[in-house]
Computed example of a mutant assay.
Amino acid sequence: MAQFQLADTDKVTFDRDGVIVLRGFHDPERDILPIQRAIYEIIGLVIERHGLNILRESFSPLSFDAGFTELIRINRGYGGEVYDLVKQIPAFLRLISSQHSEALFCSLRGTDLAGIGTASYGIRIDNPGEEKFRSQWHQEYLYQPQSVDGIVLWTPLVPILPETGPVMYCVGSHRDGLRKYVKDDVYSGKSGAYKISMLDEETIANQYPQSSPLTQPGDVIVMDYLTIHQSGYNRSARSRWSIQSRFFNFKDPSGMKIGWKASVTAGTEIEAIFSDYFVKGAA
């Protein structure tokens, strides 16, 4: 495995806050640019497949998603095609499973056996003003029950400005364990796991200092599986593209006890696994 030395101060911060921001963790030219270039090509192929007349500027790292806004304006479903296809880009798969990232996890968790959960990674596309698929306050462990000893790596593919909607997290919230959740009418307009909400989520979130770091492609936000966080509100004119990957510790007793279950998106019945943490009725 590649050697990775995490600064002592970063380890202390992560243990205390449940989050660290590593600037320039990925090389923009070597790691990020090939993904951006492939996304540009895929958008063009989807446009071509549907015979659409969408003019696009030439590729650049700052405009790799040229034509996407026009594409989803014509048909939102075309954006779904792009969403599914970009997860199959080899450069993306190399990045999420890189020795560099694995070594980071092992350094943080003091283990020599890391795992990447089934369906635990992807490229998010958060469109301006679109609430249906925005991720509200939650803890990753509920949706990724591989082991409580896990981390999320969040990497932007576009510069994250205040209007783009940076990730929001509650500093130190991981120290208070897994919270109670409810599946009710609060988020009835959402789909799948987005219908699940943390019980009294705003009250709980407001108990902690909150942070929303601005990041650039190549930066990584590293979060503990129990850190309370949510997607920011994209109020810009452009989609927010970001990479999420997750590592877990095979040797953690909690994961072993439940059998290192796959992500909720892979069909895992999290309400059965975490029955003690689900409350019936309205939040």
Rank of each mutant, 00 (worst) to 15 (best):
T13D: 13
L22D: 03
F250T: 02
G218A: 02
D10S: 08
V86R: 15
V222E: 08
E70D: 15
M198E: 02
P217F: 04
I43T: 06
S211W: 10
R56I: 07
F14M: 08
Y121H: 15
E201C: 15
D112L: 06
L6S: 06
A114R: 02
D185F: 10
H100C: 07
Y233M: 13
F250A: 10
D10V: 08
S60W: 01
P61A: 04
I35K: 15
Y225D: 12
Y141H: 00
L157Y: 02
L199H: 11
Q210M: 11
L95D: 08
L52V: 05
Y143V: 00
Q36N: 11
L226P: 05
W241A: 00
R23P: 02
G189Y: 08
M168S: 11
G218L: 03
E70G: 14
I43F: 10
I204E: 10
N127W: 11
E201I: 13
E163C: 14
R49A: 14
T164Q: 05
D126S: 13
G165P: 03
F247M: 07
I116Q: 13
P209Q: 14
Y187N: 14
D176E: 13
K132Q: 12
A91L: 12
S188L: 07
I196W: 03
P128L: 02
N249D: 14
A119V: 07
R238I: 12
E271R: 06
D31K: 05
A272S: 13
K87Q: 15
S245A: 11
L95Y: 12
A119W: 06
S63V: 11
P217I: 08
S245P: 06
Y225V: 10
C170V: 03
S60N: 05
L6D: 02
G51C: 09
I96D: 09
I74L: 14
R179C: 11
Q230V: 12
V220H: 00
R76L: 15
K257W: 11
T164H: 03
K261M: 03
V82T: 04
S101R: 14
I32A: 08
S231H: 14
P166G: 05
L71V: 08
V186M: 13
S188N: 04
D219S: 03
W260E: 00
Q36R: 15
Q144W: 03
P128D: 03
D27T: 06
F68H: 10
L142D: 00
S188Q: 05
S263F: 09
L95K: 06
T155E: 06
V82F: 07
L85S: 15
G80S: 09
R175K: 12
K11E: 08
A119M: 13
D200V: 03
